[in-house]
Simulated assay, not measured.
Amino acid sequence: MTSVIYKICPKSLWHEAESAGEFAGAGIDLADGYIHFSTAEQTPETARLYFSNTPDLVIVAVDSRPLGAALKWEESRGGQLFPHLYGVLPTSAALWVKSLPMDDEGAPRVPSLDADTGS
């Protein structure tokens, strides 16, 4: 599996996590009992399906290697394997954080993602 995974969340929630040193998840993560992530290939569809018309988002590239056994790859949308973190995310695992702007129709514009470098 890829070592770089991505999380989309409200900017304010990520700033709170940075202050605390860890990210416990957004509402859906807390309800499901794990933090939802996507691969580079899955992120644009995740953004479109779950974050359209949601202002002030960020996308966080995360190095999955230090997450260890708490990171599980589980079948989800369309039978694809998605990374799910059963625990908190140390913000030190973030490789970078970028704002996620909306296009004219309210869909998030995901930047080009290179799964190998996280850039």
Rank of each mutant, 00 (worst) to 15 (best):
Lys7Gly: 11
Tyr86Trp: 06
Tyr86Val: 07
Pro108Gln: 10
Val97Ala: 13
Gly27Pro: 00
Ser12Pro: 00
His84Phe: 04
Asp56Cys: 01
Glu75Ile: 14
Phe23Pro: 03
Glu16Phe: 01
Leu81Asp: 11
Pro55Trp: 02
Leu113Arg: 14
Glu22Val: 05
Phe82Val: 13
Tyr34Asn: 09
Thr43His: 10
Trp14Ile: 13
Arg77Asn: 12
Asp103His: 01
Pro90Ile: 10
Leu95Lys: 12
Trp96Asn: 14
Leu85Cys: 04
Pro83Gly: 11
Asn53Glu: 08
Asp114Trp: 11
Ala69Lys: 04
Tyr6Arg: 09
Leu85Ile: 06
Pro44Trp: 15
His36Gln: 09
Pro111Met: 13
Arg48Pro: 00
Phe37Ser: 08
Ala31Trp: 00
Leu30His: 00
Lys98Arg: 15
Val62Thr: 13
Val97Ile: 15
Glu75Tyr: 02
Thr54Arg: 03
Pro111Ala: 14
Ser112Cys: 15
Ser38Asn: 11
Phe82Arg: 11
Phe51Pro: 01
Gly27Asn: 02
Gly27Phe: 00
Thr117Asn: 12
Tyr6Phe: 14
Ala26Lys: 00
Glu16Gln: 11
Glu41Thr: 15
Val58Arg: 07
Leu81Cys: 10
Ala70Val: 01
Ala40Thr: 15
Ala107Pro: 00
Gln80Val: 14
Gly21Ser: 08
Ile8Asn: 06
Tyr86Leu: 03
Met102Val: 01
Ala31Cys: 00
Tyr86Met: 02
Ile8Met: 07
Asp63Phe: 00
Ala93Ser: 12
Ser99Asp: 15
Tyr50Asn: 09
Glu16Ala: 14
Phe37Met: 05
Leu89His: 08
Thr46Met: 13
Ser119Ile: 01
Arg77Gly: 04
Val58Gln: 07
Pro111Cys: 12
Val4Pro: 11
Leu81Lys: 12
Ala115Asp: 04
Arg77Ile: 10
Gly78Thr: 10
Ile5Phe: 06
Gly106Leu: 06
Leu13Phe: 02
Ala31Gln: 03
Ala47Arg: 07
Leu71Asn: 09
Pro10Phe: 02
Asn53Thr: 06
Thr91Lys: 01
Leu85Asn: 03
Met102Ala: 08
Leu89Asp: 08
Ala24Asp: 10
Gly27Lys: 01
Val58Phe: 13
Asn53Gly: 02
